[in-house]
Amino acid sequence: MARSTAGSPKARTLAAELRKLREDSKVGVRELARRIGKSHGWVNRTESGARSITVDDVTRILTGLEISSPERERLVEMARAVDEPNWLRPGIPGVREELVTLIEYERTATSIIEAAPLLIPGILQTTDYARAVMAGLPVSEREAKIGMRAARRDVLTRRTGPAFEALILEHVVLDPVCAPEHHGDQLRHLLRMGELPNVTIRVIPSHRHAWIPLYAGHFIMFEFGDASPIVHLETLASGVFLSSPGVVNTYAEALGTVRQAAMAAEETADFIATCIDKIEETL
């Protein structure tokens, strides 16, 4: 029988989807356990991704929650396609699906490292900056995605939040993708976030005249206390989750190289403050 591997990208995402459905249905853990003839510990372990999940498990839970098609078919199909070490999600990810996945990884990660060669990391974006970046999207989709980013920011200020490190190319800080006043607000927000004890922001100078792995593209590495690391790549039309050890190790080595090229956190703060002063002179 198809069974997901506990801790894999698909297992974690499937578990998060099941938990979200239960919460949306306003059914408690113990009530669901009673309905499906399992212990509440079994439900908790299933929803946290701590145990492998079979198609029968998914069917049983969806029956207990009285979930019907097409949501039922989608989740059963997800349970069938298991154990893909590098998981490609074709098509533009739906807002809800991406929200559930990223927030689940951010919620359970002990460490998040984001390499940002093009834009301010989404988890650090202000609403106005995010709105400018998403200007080409339909209004309803854009506002939903902006709400998603606002929700993601909350994980960094949580008492048990993960350690977060942003490695950002210099031109990303300098590039005014939004109005000057919003650009200044975004940089001030970076300074405030960088003051949090669990957040480190470092800028990589653009005038190094040497190639570094950050030029190859944006990625996020999630590290967990009870599972192997996962790397997330997002392209124009798909999201990719990488968990095979060799591939993840390649990204870990790339992060080491990028860190060597980056300014110290204190130097980065001074650089951002200088950029803010220059913006304010133009207003």
Results as ranks from 00 to 15, higher is better:
Ile230Trp: 00
His218Ile: 04
Tyr251Lys: 00
Met263His: 06
Pro197His: 14
Ser228Gln: 00
Leu190Gly: 05
Gly217Lys: 00
Ala273Trp: 01
Gly256Tyr: 03
Val258Trp: 04
Pro176Gln: 08
Ala15Glu: 09
Leu236His: 05
Asp83Ile: 10
Ile272Val: 12
Asn249Cys: 02
Gly91Lys: 11
Gly194Met: 11
Ile112Glu: 07
Phe164Pro: 02
Ala132Val: 14
Arg19Phe: 02
Arg80Lys: 14
Pro197Thr: 13
Ala166Gln: 09
Lys278Asn: 10
Gly91Trp: 05
Glu195Leu: 09
Leu14Gln: 12
Val247His: 03
Arg149Cys: 08
Ile276Pro: 00
Lys20Asp: 13
Gln186Ser: 04
Val43Met: 13
Leu14Gly: 12
Arg72Ala: 15
Tyr105Asp: 00
Thr257His: 03
Val43Tyr: 09
Val76Lys: 11
Pro229Arg: 00
Arg60Ile: 06
Val155Asn: 03
Ala81Ser: 15
Thr110Met: 14
Asp175Leu: 11
Arg12Cys: 05
Met221Lys: 04
Arg153Tyr: 11
Val43Phe: 07
Thr160Ile: 07
Thr59Gly: 10
Met1Asp: 09
Thr268Arg: 09
Asp83Pro: 04
Arg159Ile: 07
Ile92Pro: 01
Phe219Ile: 01
Asp277Gly: 04
Cys178Lys: 06
Pro90Arg: 05
Leu214Lys: 04
Val177Leu: 13
Phe241Val: 00
Ala269Leu: 12
Gly7His: 04
His189Gln: 14
Val29Gln: 12
Glu31Cys: 12
Cys275Leu: 02
Val82Phe: 08
Met193Cys: 13
Glu106Cys: 00
Pro138Tyr: 11
Thr157Tyr: 01
Val139Lys: 12
Ala269His: 14
